[in-house]
């Protein structure tokens, strides 16, 4: 069944007709040419497809496009302001937080969403006192980023990059 939807992708309004079976990830990549979110596992296990959906980090591979008519989608590419990289993307580069780079856009979107969650005082599994203020130490960053896999194993530098931006 075809349905016409509107997505606001990285600040641009895009109208498209999708089959109801189309995931948000496939709509972004194959229909709109927004290839910053990556298809890794396509089953919600790797985090490479992470985008910000109305400012919350989500997995676009497990989202049906038709269920997000009217949504604001921000990809890692859209986080950059004009020619300036987003501070999280800049830090990932500065700290060599990547090797092949395939997981990087998902890592960056996830980190941006995660920093907002921590800023709002959300606890994590690594938080000892659930009612205390959040302090983003390495254990917190690792736990909060555990939904983003990096098969090159750049984790140590990804943590360092996020620590720099959060501090």
């Amino acid at each position: 069944m075809d349905t016409t939807i509107t997505l606001h992708v990285d600040g641009e309004e895009r109208v498209l007709t999708v089959d109801t079976r189309t995931t948000l990830l496939d709509a972004l990549r194959d229909r709109l040419g927004s290839t910053s979110p990556k298809k890794g596992c396509d089953h919600g296990q790797c985090g490479a497809c992470t985008v910000l959906l109305d400012e919350r980090r989500v997995l676009s591979c497990l989202s049906l496009a038709v269920a997000h008519d009217g949504a604001r989608v921000t990809t890692a590419a859209g986080l950059a302001a004009r020619d300036e990289l987003h501070p999280v993307a800049r830090a990932v580069l500065d700290h060599d937080g990547l090797q092949c780079g395939y997981c990087t856009p998902g890592q960056v979107c996830s980190a941006v969403g995660m920093l907002a969650e921590a800023g709002a005082g959300w606890p994590s599994h690594a938080t000892e006192d659930l009612t205390a203020a959040v302090e983003l130490d390495d254990a917190e960053i690792r736990e909060r980023m555990s939904g983003n896999l990096c098969r090159c194993g750049a984790y140590a530098n990804i943590v360092a990059a996020i620590r720099e931006v959060s501090g």
């Binding site: 919600g44 919350r56 994590s124 599994h125 983003n148």
Partner: peptide, 10 residues
């Protein structure tokens, strides 16, 4: 908080 990941919990 022990379940899934930040993205999935959202």
């Amino acid at each position: 908080l022990a379940g899934a990941s930040g993205q999935l919990r959202n």
